[in-house]
């Protein structure tokens, strides 16, 4: 039997992939009957394809991680209003109360946010030569890098109006996750640190909460998937002012 055009490797692959015209498909099928070696080869290509499916199909069923979910954006005015009421209520209630969150959430926050934030503050705010990993001259790089590593939109608030200038920041291991720390310093070389990390779902965004360990005061809060802790060795009221300012800047943009 003769054929108008010889059957090529390309034809065989196109046959396998169902991408031949009907006429050509019939030609290839007839040709394969007389070329058992090539038919066997095609069967083996199919085995390969099946194994590929076994390897790659289960990926589709994997749950999509939180940071890759697309959520409808909150409306700007909604955010402003939420921030304003949050600050108002936070001022009245939040800083007195540690009972706003359920027990297990509170434990989680204590364990994953407050303790590591405090510890990181104590360790690095005392550091003379290497207080930060990336300094403020590379602020944009720092923010981009930390956002990428934490899979979140990380921002460094500007606290200049309170006399504190950004020194820089670093990436830290935290309990079971990574965390970012930003360090600020005033003219008197007092340092405060903002610690940010992802927090597993907590029932609701928390109010400003206060915690004290030794000489370090901390205000912390949860916003969406992120937990924040602002720590410093200073009066609680002064720290609260900066916590509010930080919250405002992070949420109204």
């Amino acid at each position: 039997m003769s054929y108008e055009t010889p059957i090529t490797d390309m034809d065989l692959h196109a046959y396998l992939d169902g991408q031949l015209s009907e006429a050509r498909r019939i030609q290839v099928e007839n040709w394969l009957k007389q070329n058992p070696d090539r038919l066997k080869e095609l069967n083996e290509f199919q085995i390969v394809d099946r194994e590929l499916h076994q390897l790659l199909d289960p990926i589709i069923k994997e749950p999509v991680p939180d940071h890759l979910q697309i959520r409808p954006r909150k409306h700007f005015f909604y955010r402003v209003a939420a921030a304003a009421s949050f600050i108002f209520i936070g001022t009245i209630i939040g800083w007195q109360s540690n009972t706003m969150l359920a027990g297990s959430d509170q434990q989680q926050i204590q364990h994953h946010l407050i303790q590591p934030a405090n510890f990181a503050h104590v360790v690095f705010s005392a550091e003379k030569k290497h207080p930060v990993e990336v300094d403020a001259t590379q602020e944009q790089h720092l923010i981009k890098w930390l956002s990428k590593r934490l899979h979140a939109d990380i921002k460094a608030p500007n606290l200049l109006q309170h006399g504190y200038e950004l020194v820089g920041g670093r990436l830290l291991p935290s309990t079971n996750r990574m965390a970012a720390q930003f360090m600020y310093q005033n003219k008197a070389a007092n340092r405060i640190t903002l610690y940010v990390r992802r927090i597993n779902k907590v029932d609701a965004d928390s109010m400003f909460q206060f915690s004290n360990t030794g000489s370090v005061n901390t205000f912390y809060w949860i916003e969406g998937e992120l937990g924040y802790a602002l720590s410093g060795e200073m009066e609680r009221s002064e720290l609260l002012t900066m916590a509010r300012s930080t919250y405002q800047q992070l949420n109204i943009d």
């Binding site: 589709i60 999509v64 890759l68 979910q69």
Partner: peptide, 11 residues
């Protein structure tokens, strides 16, 4: 619609 393709993008 983009969200629907995330599993395929992950693969």
């Amino acid at each position: 619609q983009i969200a629907d393709y995330i599993p395929q993008l992950r693969r």
